[in-house]
Protein backbone atom coordinates (compact mmCIF):
# COMPACT_ATOMS: atom_id res chain seq x y z
CA UNK A 1 0.00 0.00 0.00
CA UNK A 2 2.56 2.50 -1.14
CA UNK A 3 1.53 5.94 -2.29
CA UNK A 4 2.44 7.84 -5.41
CA UNK A 5 4.95 9.93 -3.54
CA UNK A 6 6.96 6.82 -2.75
CA UNK A 7 6.71 5.77 -6.42
CA UNK A 8 8.31 9.08 -7.36
CA UNK A 9 11.00 8.44 -4.77
CA UNK A 10 11.56 4.98 -6.21
CA UNK A 11 11.88 6.39 -9.72
CA UNK A 12 14.37 8.95 -8.48
CA UNK A 13 16.39 6.27 -6.69
CA UNK A 14 16.35 3.94 -9.71
CA UNK A 15 17.45 6.75 -12.02
CA UNK A 16 20.32 7.56 -9.67
CA UNK A 17 21.41 3.91 -9.51
CA UNK A 18 24.11 2.86 -11.96
CA UNK A 19 22.84 1.15 -15.12
CA UNK A 20 23.15 -2.66 -14.94
CA UNK A 21 25.94 -4.20 -16.98
CA UNK A 22 25.04 -4.79 -20.65
CA UNK A 23 23.47 -8.18 -21.36
CA UNK A 24 24.94 -10.30 -24.13
CA UNK A 25 23.13 -13.55 -24.96
CA UNK A 26 26.22 -14.86 -26.72
CA UNK A 27 27.81 -15.39 -23.29
CA UNK A 28 25.45 -18.14 -22.03
CA UNK A 29 25.23 -19.66 -25.52
CA UNK A 30 29.00 -19.64 -25.89
CA UNK A 31 29.48 -21.14 -22.44
CA UNK A 32 27.04 -23.97 -23.14
CA UNK A 33 28.59 -24.66 -26.53
CA UNK A 34 32.19 -24.40 -25.32
CA UNK A 35 31.73 -26.60 -22.26
CA UNK A 36 29.79 -29.22 -24.23
CA UNK A 37 32.45 -29.26 -26.96
CA UNK A 38 35.23 -29.52 -24.38
CA UNK A 39 33.54 -32.41 -22.58
CA UNK A 40 32.91 -34.20 -25.88
CA UNK A 41 36.49 -33.74 -27.00
CA UNK A 42 37.73 -35.28 -23.75
CA UNK A 43 35.22 -38.12 -24.10
CA UNK A 44 36.29 -38.88 -27.68
CA UNK A 45 39.97 -38.74 -26.75
CA UNK A 46 39.42 -41.27 -23.95
CA UNK A 47 36.91 -43.60 -25.62
CA UNK A 48 37.79 -42.94 -29.25
CA UNK A 49 35.83 -42.40 -32.44
CA UNK A 50 34.17 -45.47 -33.89
CA UNK A 51 36.89 -47.35 -35.76
CA UNK A 52 34.96 -47.57 -39.03
CA UNK A 53 33.86 -43.93 -39.11
CA UNK A 54 35.23 -43.12 -42.56
CA UNK A 55 33.46 -46.05 -44.24
CA UNK A 56 30.26 -45.77 -42.21
CA UNK A 57 29.87 -42.05 -42.97
CA UNK A 58 28.82 -43.00 -46.53
CA UNK A 59 25.57 -44.28 -45.03
CA UNK A 60 22.70 -41.80 -44.84
CA UNK A 61 21.56 -43.24 -41.50
CA UNK A 62 24.98 -42.64 -39.95
CA UNK A 63 25.00 -39.06 -41.19
CA UNK A 64 21.49 -38.54 -39.85
CA UNK A 65 22.56 -39.83 -36.43
CA UNK A 66 24.97 -36.88 -36.13
CA UNK A 67 23.28 -34.24 -38.22
CA UNK A 68 19.70 -34.44 -36.91
CA UNK A 69 20.77 -33.83 -33.29
CA UNK A 70 23.01 -31.01 -34.55
CA UNK A 71 20.03 -29.39 -36.28
CA UNK A 72 17.95 -29.85 -33.13
CA UNK A 73 20.75 -28.28 -31.07
CA UNK A 74 20.99 -25.24 -33.35
CA UNK A 75 17.22 -24.68 -33.35
CA UNK A 76 16.91 -25.03 -29.58
CA UNK A 77 19.87 -22.72 -28.99
CA UNK A 78 18.33 -20.10 -31.25
CA UNK A 79 15.05 -20.35 -29.34
CA UNK A 80 16.84 -20.05 -25.98
CA UNK A 81 18.50 -16.84 -27.16
CA UNK A 82 15.17 -15.45 -28.32
CA UNK A 83 13.50 -16.43 -25.07
CA UNK A 84 16.13 -14.59 -23.04
CA UNK A 85 14.63 -11.23 -24.02
CA UNK A 86 11.05 -10.36 -23.04
CA UNK A 87 8.60 -9.60 -25.81
CA UNK A 88 10.08 -11.79 -28.55
CA UNK A 89 7.66 -14.42 -29.75
CA UNK A 90 8.69 -18.06 -29.62
CA UNK A 91 7.86 -20.34 -32.54
CA UNK A 92 8.40 -23.89 -31.37
CA UNK A 93 7.30 -25.84 -34.43
CA UNK A 94 10.75 -25.91 -36.14
CA UNK A 95 11.83 -28.28 -33.36
CA UNK A 96 9.41 -30.81 -34.79
CA UNK A 97 11.39 -31.05 -38.05
CA UNK A 98 14.36 -33.11 -36.78
CA UNK A 99 12.06 -35.11 -34.49
CA UNK A 100 9.74 -35.83 -37.40
CA UNK A 101 12.69 -36.89 -39.53
CA UNK A 102 13.82 -39.40 -36.88
CA UNK A 103 10.28 -40.68 -36.52
CA UNK A 104 10.00 -41.13 -40.29
CA UNK A 105 13.31 -43.02 -40.41
CA UNK A 106 12.20 -45.28 -37.57
CA UNK A 107 8.86 -45.99 -39.26
CA UNK A 108 10.60 -46.77 -42.56
CA UNK A 109 12.89 -49.15 -40.73
CA UNK A 110 9.88 -50.78 -39.06
CA UNK A 111 8.08 -51.16 -42.39
CA UNK A 112 10.98 -53.04 -43.89
CA UNK A 113 11.81 -55.05 -40.77
CA UNK A 114 12.05 -58.80 -40.60
CA UNK A 115 12.12 -59.94 -36.94
CA UNK A 116 14.66 -59.33 -34.16
CA UNK A 117 13.37 -55.79 -33.73
CA UNK A 118 13.60 -55.98 -29.96
CA UNK A 119 17.34 -56.58 -30.13
CA UNK A 120 17.69 -53.71 -32.57
CA UNK A 121 15.85 -51.25 -30.31
CA UNK A 122 17.64 -52.31 -27.16
CA UNK A 123 21.06 -52.54 -28.82
CA UNK A 124 24.22 -53.35 -26.92
CA UNK A 125 25.16 -49.93 -25.57
CA UNK A 126 21.89 -48.32 -24.53
CA UNK A 127 22.99 -47.71 -20.95
CA UNK A 128 26.36 -46.29 -22.01
CA UNK A 129 24.56 -44.01 -24.45
CA UNK A 130 22.12 -42.74 -21.83
CA UNK A 131 24.72 -42.13 -19.15
CA UNK A 132 27.29 -40.55 -21.50
CA UNK A 133 24.88 -38.07 -23.06
CA UNK A 134 23.29 -37.03 -19.75
CA UNK A 135 26.60 -36.84 -17.87
CA UNK A 136 28.31 -34.79 -20.57
CA UNK A 137 25.29 -32.44 -20.66
CA UNK A 138 25.02 -31.57 -17.01
CA UNK A 139 27.94 -29.17 -16.56
CA UNK A 140 27.24 -27.08 -19.68
CA UNK A 141 23.54 -27.03 -18.81
CA UNK A 142 24.06 -25.79 -15.26
CA UNK A 143 26.56 -23.17 -16.45
CA UNK A 144 24.20 -22.02 -19.18
CA UNK A 145 21.24 -21.72 -16.80
CA UNK A 146 23.26 -19.77 -14.26
CA UNK A 147 24.47 -17.36 -16.96
CA UNK A 148 20.90 -17.02 -18.24
CA UNK A 149 19.89 -15.59 -14.88
CA UNK A 150 21.14 -12.28 -16.26
CA UNK A 151 18.53 -12.64 -18.99
CA UNK A 152 14.82 -12.13 -18.43
CA UNK A 153 12.83 -15.02 -19.79
CA UNK A 154 9.11 -14.63 -19.27
CA UNK A 155 8.78 -18.43 -19.69
CA UNK A 156 11.47 -19.76 -17.34
CA UNK A 157 10.47 -23.44 -17.41
CA UNK A 158 10.28 -23.59 -21.19
CA UNK A 159 13.57 -21.71 -21.51
CA UNK A 160 15.28 -24.14 -19.13
CA UNK A 161 13.91 -27.12 -21.06
CA UNK A 162 15.07 -25.63 -24.37
CA UNK A 163 18.54 -25.09 -22.91
CA UNK A 164 18.52 -28.76 -21.89
CA UNK A 165 17.52 -29.82 -25.41
CA UNK A 166 20.18 -27.60 -26.97
CA UNK A 167 22.99 -28.95 -24.80
CA UNK A 168 22.03 -32.63 -24.90
CA UNK A 169 21.30 -32.64 -28.64
CA UNK A 170 24.71 -31.09 -29.25
CA UNK A 171 26.32 -33.72 -27.05
CA UNK A 172 24.37 -36.49 -28.78
CA UNK A 173 25.54 -35.36 -32.20
CA UNK A 174 29.16 -35.67 -31.04
CA UNK A 175 28.54 -38.91 -29.14
CA UNK A 176 27.19 -40.36 -32.41
CA UNK A 177 30.75 -40.32 -33.77
CA UNK A 178 31.66 -42.82 -31.07
CA UNK A 179 28.52 -44.95 -31.16
CA UNK A 180 28.41 -47.92 -33.54
CA UNK A 181 24.67 -48.64 -33.43
CA UNK A 182 23.19 -47.15 -36.56
CA UNK A 183 19.56 -48.26 -36.49
CA UNK A 184 17.15 -45.31 -36.28
CA UNK A 185 15.19 -47.49 -33.86
CA UNK A 186 18.17 -47.46 -31.51
CA UNK A 187 19.27 -43.85 -31.70
CA UNK A 188 15.74 -42.53 -32.00
CA UNK A 189 14.87 -44.28 -28.76
CA UNK A 190 17.94 -43.77 -26.64
CA UNK A 191 19.25 -40.43 -27.88
CA UNK A 192 15.67 -39.19 -27.67
CA UNK A 193 15.30 -40.49 -24.14
CA UNK A 194 18.58 -38.89 -23.05
CA UNK A 195 17.62 -35.55 -24.61
CA UNK A 196 14.23 -35.76 -22.93
CA UNK A 197 15.78 -36.44 -19.54
CA UNK A 198 18.18 -33.52 -19.83
CA UNK A 199 15.29 -31.33 -20.99
CA UNK A 200 13.41 -32.26 -17.82
CA UNK A 201 16.42 -31.35 -15.70
CA UNK A 202 16.64 -28.07 -17.62
CA UNK A 203 12.95 -27.37 -17.01
CA UNK A 204 13.42 -27.93 -13.30
CA UNK A 205 16.53 -25.73 -13.22
CA UNK A 206 14.63 -23.08 -15.15
CA UNK A 207 11.77 -23.19 -12.68
CA UNK A 208 14.23 -22.93 -9.83
CA UNK A 209 16.71 -20.36 -11.16
CA UNK A 210 15.29 -18.44 -14.11
CA UNK A 211 12.34 -16.76 -12.43
CA UNK A 212 12.80 -13.09 -11.62
Amino acid sequence: MSDRQSTDDLIRALAAAPAPAPFNPVVPAGAMFGLAAGGLAAFLVVFGLRPDLGAAWQDLGVQAKSLLPAVLCALALWLVLRASRPGTGLTLWPLALPLGAVLAMALLRLAGAEGALRAEVLGQTALACLTSITALSLVPLVAGILLLRRAASTRPVLTGALAGVAVSAGVASGYALHCTEDSPLFFGTWYGLAIGMVALVGAWLGHRFLRW
Binding site: S2, S6, L14, A17, F23, A151, W212
Partner: peptide, 21 residues
Protein backbone atom coordinates in the same frame (compact mmCIF):
# COMPACT_ATOMS: atom_id res chain seq x y z
CA UNK B 1 -4.61 0.39 -2.62
CA UNK B 2 -2.16 -2.38 -3.55
CA UNK B 3 -1.91 -1.36 -7.18
CA UNK B 4 0.84 1.10 -6.39
CA UNK B 5 2.86 -1.69 -4.75
CA UNK B 6 2.56 -3.78 -7.90
CA UNK B 7 3.55 -0.77 -9.99
CA UNK B 8 6.69 -0.32 -7.92
CA UNK B 9 7.59 -3.98 -8.39
CA UNK B 10 7.20 -3.54 -12.15
CA UNK B 11 9.34 -0.38 -12.14
CA UNK B 12 12.06 -2.16 -10.17
CA UNK B 13 11.98 -5.09 -12.61
CA UNK B 14 12.26 -2.67 -15.54
CA UNK B 15 15.38 -1.24 -13.93
CA UNK B 16 16.97 -4.61 -13.15
CA UNK B 17 16.23 -6.14 -16.57
CA UNK B 18 16.51 -3.05 -18.77
CA UNK B 19 19.62 -4.33 -20.52
CA UNK B 20 17.65 -7.22 -22.01
CA UNK B 21 15.89 -4.75 -24.28
Amino acid sequence: DQHEDVLQEVLLAIHLKRQTW
